[in-house]
């Protein structure tokens, strides 16, 4: 797709004068998955139109790494809703530049849906292009954030932490790997756990990682 076509799609988003019009224009721009559309898609995250925001997040994930800088420089510390959507986009893209935002979101965000997206995102950062020492250190930062997330007060966040830990496991050396297993065993056997599904998900993760869990 050539640039003028993307500009036309961006203009259509900016001209939209109804919720439905915005949704449709955003879907069209998102489907183009063109880096020149990223700034406009990030803007849509702040429009308080959930349907359009979902489409914009999908579009940003489809653009991938070229969208990351745009998201990070425009992340809105005041507009809570926009920030939540941006965390989801960063979690979906998996670029390591989003690490700090994801750590912060899992540890501090007031919205369970944001913490849950961050926990999943921390398990699926793409670390393969990093130099080995940085790669291991980064994976251990993800592990640390997820270990702390095991104590989250919302079952759905603890569930997402179990999923994040499972997908992070292959990145870790044996010693931190042991800590990861211990965290999953904690989720598996936590006597305070009110949601059996969390314990079951941890059991599945341990089974897939070849760890016996009783």
């Amino acid at each position: 797709m050539i640039n003028t076509d993307v500009m036309a799609l961006v203009e259509a988003v900016q001209r939209a004068d109804s919720a439905l019009g915005l949704l449709q224009a955003t879907q069209a721009l998102a489907a183009a998955a063109h880096p020149d559309g990223a700034a406009c898609l990030v803007e849509v995250l702040g429009f308080n139109n959930p349907g359009a925001a979902v489409a914009a997040v999908d579009g940003l994930i489809a653009i991938g790494e070229p969208a990351v800088d745009t998201i990070l420089t425009n992340i809105d510390g005041y507009n809570y809703g926009a920030r939540a959507w941006a965390v989801r986009a960063l979690a979906g893209i998996g670029d390591v530049r989003g690490l700090e935002v994801l750590e912060d979101a899992l540890g501090k965000d007031i919205g369970p849906s944001v913490r849950r997206a961050a926990a999943r995102g921390l398990g699926q950062l793409r670390l393969e292009n990093l130099a080995a020492p940085v790669r291991q250190a980064t994976a251990e930062r993800c592990l640390q954030a997820l270990v702390e997330g095991c104590r989250d007060g919302e079952w759905v966040v603890r569930y997402a932490v179990a999923v994040g830990l499972e997908s992070l496991a292959p990145e870790l050396h044996p010693e931190p790997q042991q800590r990861l297993h211990a965290a999953l065993l904690g989720l598996r056997h936590n006597p305070e756990e009110e949601a059996p599904v969390v314990s079951l998900r941890a059991a599945l993760a341990l089974q897939r990682l070849g760890v016996s869990h009783g």
């Binding site: 926990a119 759905v156 314990s199």
Partner: peptide
Amino acid sequence: AGQPEAAPDPATVAVLDVMDALL
């Protein structure tokens, strides 16, 4: 009726897989 200590059966894993994709 459930066995809380049992590992998830395939039908349960199918539900968990759908949940994972919605996080």
